[in-house]
Design a protein around this nucleic acid. Structure first.
Lengths: 348, 348
DNA sequence: AGCGTCGCAGCAAGCGCTTTCTACTAGAGG
DNA sequence: CCTCTAGTAGAAAGCGCTTGCTGCGACGCT
C-alpha cells in the first residue's frame, strides 16, 4: 500500500541501509549511489515514516511550544519568534524540526497533559511561555514533569516565565515587577495619587509580579493604597471594561487606571470613554506589553514594552542548542517604559 | 534506562499485551488485572512511547493546524477554536490528540514542508486556515499533497480557504467576495464616490476575492474605478499606514479608504489622523474580519464580521469526524456587515 | 457427565526504520 | 606481489508497541 524504505531500496538496487543513510546524510555514500536513491525516492513519492524513524533512532524532531492563549498576540508574537528559530521548515537547512504550538488555554490540567503528550512523543525540546500558575500541587507536578523531561534529554526553556529551580530548565524571565514599578512611578511623577489597578487572574505569577511592582512604587512614594483600588479579572478586553466600571463605582475620584496588560487597558479606555471621561485629561490609562495595536489606540497607550520577539528568538535558539544558556540557567529580560498620550497630568 | 511496557508488565505480573490493552482500553481486561497494571504504571512513572505505538498501530494522534501568521489574531482565534474541538487535552474524554499549530509565515515552501512533515508523522487530520496562494505550480503541489494525505486516510479540512477540487479535502470557505461587496455598497450608499482600496498581497485568494467584491459594488453603482485608488501591501498595520499615505498622495480627494483587513484599517486610520484628516468627517475607513480590538478603535471600525470562532469549531469537529462534512464537501460561511463610527456621510 | 461458549490472558509476528558490525573492492605502500 | 587501509555497501538485530490468533479455565446447557 504505502511506499516504504524497502521499496525505494529495491528500485534503486541497493539495501535499505543505504537508502536510510542517503536520507539522513550522516554516513558516506558514493555520489552515484546517492543519485540513484534520490531518483527512486522521487519516482515513488516516498515519504519517510516519522514514527518508525523516531522509534529506531530514539529521537524525534518535535519541538513543543506551550502557550496560554493562542488567540492573544502576546503569545502569538513569542510563538512566532520561537518557531522561526526552531527552523521548522524554512529555518536553516538540515535538521528539519516540527515546531508545534500547544494551546493550554490557561488550564493547569491541559498544561500537564500537553507536557505528557510531548514527553510521550519524545520531543527534542519544549518551550513554555507566559506566566506560571501559583498553585502548589500543580506547580510541583509541573516541576516534576520538567525534571523528568530534562533528564530524558529534552531541552526545556521557560520564556517569560519564572525559573523552575532544580528542574534543569533554562529560564528567560520578564522583569514584570520592575516594569510595573517604573510604570506606576511615571504616573506618580505626573502627580497621580489615586490609582486604580486592574490585575490579571490571581493565581498567575505575571499578575502577582506586576501588581507587586505597582505597590512598590506606591509605597516608595508614600501613598497608602486603598483596597478598593484593585480589581482582578482575566487578561482580556472585556475584563478591563467591566473592571473599570467597577473601579469607577467604588471610587469615582480615581485619576489613573493601570491595567494588567494592553488588551485590558483597551477595555478600560472604552469604559472610561463611555462613562464620559476623557483620557488623559480626566483619567490616565496605562497598559503593559506594548502589543502592536497599542500605538493605534486613541490616545496612544502608555505602556511597558516587553521584547517579546527577541526573548522568543533567544528561547528558540537555546532550545535548539544553538546558543549558550545564560549563566546559572536564568536570565532576566527587562521592559521599557513607553510614555504616550494616554497618560498625563491629573486634573487639579 | 527508560521504562518500557515490558517493565510494567513484569511488575504487574502480566504480559505486555495485557498492559497495552489496559492502556488502550479497547479490549476486555478483568478489573483486578487492570488495577494491578495501573498501579505498576503509576509506580514506575511509565509514559507510553508515542513513536512506537504510532508505528505499531499505524496511526497517530497528531492533528496539524496550518496558519499563515500565528501572531495575527485572525489566525489565533481560528486556531484556538479548532484546537478546542480537536480535544487536545481537556477536550472530551478518550482520544487524546495532540493538536499542533504550524506557522507557515505565508511562505509556500514552508506550507509544503509542514504538510510533508505532517504526512511523515502520519497525522490523523490536517486543517489549513486562511487564504491560499495563487501560484500555479505551488497550488498544484499543495493539491497533490492534500490528495496524497486524504488517500492515506488523513482527514483534511480547509477553513477560511477556497475549495481544493479533487483532493478529498472538505472546505469551509469565507464569503470574502460577498462581504467585500456589501461593505463597499454601504459606503456608496452613504454617498462616497471616490474610494481608495488597500489590498493585501497580490497572490492570495483572500486578497483577490475581497477586491473583487469591492469592484463589483463599484461597477453596480456605475462608478468607474481609478487605477490609482488601489494599493497592495501586507496584511498588517504598517502596510496600512504606508499605503494610506500613498493613496493620499495619489488622490487627496478620496473620501473613503477600504482596507483589506482590520489591522490594515488601523494603520490607515493612524495615517489619516496624522495627516490631519478626521474620521469619518473627512474620510471614512472600513476594515474586514472584525477582530476584537476593532470595536475599540476610535471611532469604532466599520467592518465585516467573519465568524472565525464558529468556523474553526466546525472545522475542528469535521476534522475529528464528529460532524458530517457539508454536502459536496463545500460550505460557504458568510460575513456580517458591522456599521460603526468610522464610516459616515462624505463631506459635501 | 459431556460439550459448546464465553471471558480473559499470552504468544509471537510484525510495524518501518536506524545502526553496528562485517564484507568486499580498490588503491597505496612495502 | 602481498598486505594494509580507506571507502562503501549489506546483513541483521533490534527500537517499543499493537493485535490476530491461540489457549485455557469456568460456566451453562442438554
Amino acid at each position: 500500500m504505502t511506499v516504504t524504505l524497502a521499496d525505494v531500496a529495491a528500485r534503486a538496487q541497493v539495501s535499505p541501509a543505504t537508502v536510510s543513510r542517503v536520507l539522513n546524510g550522516n554516513y558516506p555514500v558514493a555520489a552515484s549511489t546517492r543519485e540513484r536513491v534520490l531518483k527512486a525516492v522521487d519516482e515513488l513519492d516516498y515519504v519517510l515514516n516519522g514514527p518508525a524513524s523516531a522509534l529506531a533512532a530514539a529521537t524525534s524532531d518535535l519541538v513543543g511550544i506551550l502557550v496560554n492563549d493562542i488567540a492573544d498576540p502576546f503569545f502569538g508574537i513569542m510563538a512566532s519568534a520561537i518557531q522561526a528559530e526552531i527552523g521548522g521548515p524554512g529555518g536553516r537547512a538540515g535538521g528539519e524540526r516540527l515546531a508545534v504550538v500547544c494551546n493550554t488555554g490557561g488550564s493547569p490540567e491541559r498544561e500537564l497533559t500537553y507536557l505528557t503528550l510531548l514527553q510521550r512523543q519524545r520531543a527534542a525540546a519544549v518551550v513554555l511561555t507566559g506566566g506560571a500558575i501559583e498553585n502548589q500541587p500543580h506547580a510541583a507536578a509541573v516541576a516534576a514533569k520538567l525534571r523528568r523531561l530534562t533528564e530524558a534529554g529534552t531541552r526545556v526553556v521557560l520564556c517569560g516565565r519564572p525559573p523552575a529551580p532544580d528542574t534543569g530548565a533554562v529560564a528567560l524571565t520578564f522583569d514584570n515587577r520592575g516594569g510595573g514599578q517604573r510604570l506606576t512611578e511615571h504616573l506618580i511623577g505626573l502627580g497621580h495619587r489615586r490609582l486604580g489597578y486592574i490585575a490579571g487572574p490571581e493565581e498567575r505569577t505575571t499578575t502577582r509580579h506586576r501588581l507587586e511592582g505597582h505597590r512598590a512604587a506606591l509605597a516608595t512614594a508614600g501613598i497608602e493604597e486603598d483596597p478598593r483600588w484593585t480589581v482582578h479579572g482575566r487578561y482580556d478586553r472585556q475584563a478591563g471594561y467591566e473592571a473599570t466600571l467597577e473601579l469607577l463605582r467604588r471610587d469615582p475620584s480615581l485619576t489613573a487606571v493601570v491595567a494588567a496588560n494592553d488588551s485590558v487597558a483597551l477595555g478600560a479606555a472604552a469604559a472610561l470613554r463611555e462613562s464620559g471621561l476623557r483620557i488623559p485629561e480626566d483619567v490616565s490609562v496605562a497598559g503593559f506589553d506594548d502589543l502592536p495595536f497599542s500605538v493605534d489606540a486613541v490616545p496612544a497607550l502608555t505602556t511597558v514594552r516587553l521584547p517579546l520577539g527577541e526573548a522568543g528568538s533567544r528561547a528558540g535558539r537555546i532550545a535548539m542548542g544553538r546558543e549558550e544558556p545564560p549563566p546559572g540557567g536564568i536570565a532576566t529580560v527587562g521592559g521599557e517604559l513607553m510614555v504616550r498620550g494616554s497618560s498625563g497630568v491629573p486634573r487639579a
